[in-house]
Design a binder for these strands. Sequence first.
DNA 1: TATTGTTATACTCTATAACTATA
DNA 2: TATAGTTATAGAGTATAACAATA
Lengths: 172, 172
Amino acid sequence: MAAKRKSNPARAVSQTIDSETRVRDDHHQSLRLWLRLLACTSLIENHVRQRLQSGFATTLPRFDLMAQLERAPGGLKMGELSRRMMVTGGNVTGITDLLEEEGLVARVADAADRRALRVKLTAEGRQQFGRMAREHEQWVIGLFAEMPLKKKEQLAALLSELKQNVARATSD
Amino acid sequence: MAAKRKSNPARAVSQTIDSETRVRDDHHQSLRLWLRLLACTSLIENHVRQRLQSGFATTLPRFDLMAQLERAPGGLKMGELSRRMMVTGGNVTGITDLLEEEGLVARVADAADRRALRVKLTAEGRQQFGRMAREHEQWVIGLFAEMPLKKKEQLAALLSELKQNVARATSD
DNA sequence: TATTGTTATACTCTATAACTATA
DNA sequence: TATAGTTATAGAGTATAACAATA
């Protein structure tokens, strides 16, 4: 399926054929890898997003924000959330607003820097996140059930390495 | 150290401590894998999205739609695009509208079914997609440059398997 | 001056449901 | 009746830039 060069007659656009052919047939391993990565992730993400919506009336970014907080008992500053979630500051404000309205997180003044705020999970937020995380975990376990553990470990290790590489490459 | 399925005694949870601890400490390999997958993809996706925006004033969904068409010389019906892009029909209409306004794709009546439309790349669309795809490929090659080819192949193979598994699991 | 966070704005993507025109 | 696609609606996420308070 991969190398089936379809010898398309060059009747249409004479100038662009070369580049088009190249794009179509000469996908490098890197590109193929990226597309596969994206496809995998989208598939799972769609599934998770749907369930998050129908089961908890929440979204992936919101879940993500809470997950960050769950791992940071002292709370996180807005800017730190922004960095970890890889979105801009205005965004974090918006998502935090919604979560705060629902009573799941709280903004607390930072002792050391009066410009800063620390966002923390409330007790209710912690509880709800626990419920979501448990279900979330079950969904994921179900999705990955067929893959043997050894391969999962292998995959996780490779992804870890890739992440390091990409992080280095993007920081330039 | 991975196969330690901690089938937690799951005592009646009078406090939330048990569940919190479980969530924090007992991440199964599947969950860890999923989070790593998501992190990797987001990292790359953010990068690509930014460049797509600054370099071509376009977005990932638009690029995706064009990529689908580029691989389907006869064009694709709206419904097929919807399935392949994993979004709903109304969405495809919107994205197609924008691309059509820019002259990059065209809607063509389907010969066999008068309800249906086939979306095709225009000559200009094909050309622009070629430019984008070439740059896109270079970005990706740059991001993945540090990983040896062998590992990329391994990773691609594992992802391929995972995708099959997930597709089967989500179709139930 | 620089940094932290908010506000204001605008746009894209997204899903849902009602609608049309064919099948 | 069922399917293909559009329209209308509503909402979330996103980036950008201007702004306030504090460092």
